[in-house]
Nucleic acid binder design. Structure first.
Lengths: 141, 141
DNA sequence: TATTGTTATACTCTATAACTATA
DNA sequence: TATAGTTATAGAGTATAACAATA
């Protein structure tokens, strides 16, 4: 039971948590002017990208439980940013409304600025390695 | 308002969020057997490292509000993992109890295994760049 | 029998506001 | 007057369990 000193700032896992908290907080600030959350912006991007995507599809793509989509999509729908169209008696396709596309366009600007700021913070020699390293941590091998 | 397709998996910010969620979830699983949370393990490491650290010191080191330390330290104290010693009428030094050191030793094993697993997931050419890249995202420049 | 959508609930981490007591 | 500890509360992003309806 030696009182080993563990320097947490040298642990990639700790740095990952701190970096994510710090950066996502900054993105949240940027999006707060549009009154949308980071998770909502992400979902809107996917809805905009895909054709006939359902709530379950989005949940699978984001690797979160589909139960969490319910309040999130309800809020987006209540605000007139998304619409649903029945695909059959069970599934509903999600689509952005005109207003939703407008908000997403603005969100995209903020996201672009955010991503630029993020990359700018990373010193040159490490820059190109960040994305593939992070992808390896969450994408299936 | 071109319906530009934004591939979120190519955004470092998105990858950062996904990677952190995925990996921290795995660490939480590892620590759940010890019935301690990730944030608690982090705090215990700092308490163990430093001498006469107060709750406010820990909060500053982790860059979180000191209000959040209250329920967390209370839980650790109730479980007999930490003790407090008055430094003056205002500040309290935090220390691990013998039981706390035992739990921390076990937590350290899990953390070491977790960090090894994390690094192992990152392909060789990117590996050494991950930590410095992440540090640049949360440490002051 | 697997999947979709849903309700209700809870957990983790972090934040804000406001207060007391001490340095 | 700045700091330490505290209380109470809220927000964001998850999770689990259980259910009805449909494919």
């Amino acid at each position: 039971m030696t009182p080993e000193r563990l320097d947490i700032d040298q642990l990639p896992g700790y740095a990952l948590r701190r970096a994510a908290n710090a950066m996502i907080g900054r993105l949240a600030e940027r999006l707060s002017g549009l009154d949308i959350r980071v998770s909502e912006a992400t979902a809107m991007i996917l809805v905009n990208n895909g054709d006939c995507l359902t709530a379950s599809d989005i949940a699978r793509a984001l690797d979160i439980r589909r139960t969490n989509m319910v309040p999130m999509l309800k809020r987006l729908e209540d605000r007139g940013l998304i619409e649903r169209r029945a695909l059959d008696g069970k599934s509903q396709a999600l689509m952005l409304t005109a207003q939703g596309e407008k908000v997403l366009a603005a969100a995209r600007q903020e996201i672009a600025a955010f991503e630029a700021e993020l990359i700018a913070r990373v010193p040159e020699p490490h820059r190109e390695h960040l994305l593939p390293a992070l992808q390896a941590l969450y994408l299936p091998p």
